[in-house]
């Protein structure tokens, strides 16, 4: 038996295919552009190719994320809170705080020892767009987003980027460039800014596990989060896939009845 979980986010669409034992046998991540339905087809087609199974053999499909409603073949749709918690708990299997940092609104999710979500809180509306902000910052710094981390690592000090609002922060980046800050200092400032916004969402308790695409491409955010909170912060394996993996596990539950 194979099932799929699909996480349709504002920056990437991710599909994970798991077998009857919950083992990942196919995965794909495609950038979000145009219609979500097309991204879903592309990501799921690639993941099924890796799994070497046709779509018709999918016993269940669980969708999650911003555009979960855009998966016509979904047998269920669940919130990303639940799916990220499930994906993380499946790997860690202990009480923890999951911090999901994706393209839109990061979340702090408290999970008990049984894997149940006991509380969750997302960033307030005027501070959304965190992952997307890093993409915009890359444009202003004239580097590909994947280079932003190298730039930040090269900086000896951070240029302060402090606005709640990602649009205001973007203006701050331009202003810092005008004032002569280096691209590296600004890149590091952006990562620290995101860490600070996350620390404001809710009280964090050890152990902390990070999921979502931001830590996959910008691990400097996690480093800043650990330094500024003085807490132990770990990144889950394949963090960008945590939501889709959790969704796939729920699909498996459903297929098993």
């Amino acid at each position: 038996m194979v099932v799929a979980g699909v996480d349709l986010g504002t920056e990437c669409v991710k599909t994970v295919v798991v077998d009857g034992d919950g083992k990942i046998v196919g995965r794909a991540t495609v950038p979000t552009r145009g219609y979500f339905q097309d991204c879903f087809q592309e990501a799921t087609g690639t993941a099924l190719q890796e799994a070497k199974v046709p779509a018709a053999q999918l016993a269940a499909v669980c969708a999650t994320g911003f555009a979960a409603s855009c998966v016509p073949i979904a047998s269920q749709a669940l919130s990303e809170t639940l799916c990220h918690a499930r994906g993380a708990w499946h790997t860690v299997k202990k009480e923890m705080t999951v911090v999901d940092i994706g393209g839109r609104d990061p979340k702090v999710i408290h999970v008990d020892a049984r894997g149940a979500v006991t509380a969750s809180r997302s960033v307030r509306k005027c501070a959304v767009g965190i992952g997307t902000f890093l993409m915009f910052a890359s444009r202003h710094l004239d580097v590909h987003p994947t280079r932003l981390m190298d730039l930040a690592t090269s900086a000896a000090k951070a240029a302060p980027v402090g606005s709640y609002c990602s649009v205001f922060s973007e203006v701050e980046v331009i202003e810092l460039l005008r004032q002569g800050s280096t691209a590296g200092e600004i890149a590091l400032g952006c990562m620290i800014s995101i860490a600070d916004r996350i620390l404001e969402i809710d009280h964090l308790e050890n152990p902390i596990y990070i999921t979502g695409g931001v830590c996959e491409y910008f691990p400097g955010v996690v480093k800043a989060l650990a330094e500024r909170s003085a807490l132990s912060v770990e990144i889950l394996p394949e963090p960008i896939l945590a939501g889709a993996f959790g969704a796939a596990l729920y699909a498996l539950d459903q297929a098993r009845g």
Binding site: V18, D19, D21, G22, K23, I24, V25, L78, S79, E80, T81, L82, R86, W89, H90, T91, R114, G115, A116, V117, T118, A119, S120, P237, E238, F245, L249, L252, D253, R256
Partner: peptide, 20 residues
């Protein structure tokens, strides 16, 4: 939706496997 799911107190079934 996430809050209502939280109220359901869903406890994951224990599937094996993981990141392969």
């Amino acid at each position: 939706e996430a809050f209502v799911e939280q109220l359901e107190g869903a406890v994951p079934a224990t599937a094996g496997g993981g990141h392969g």
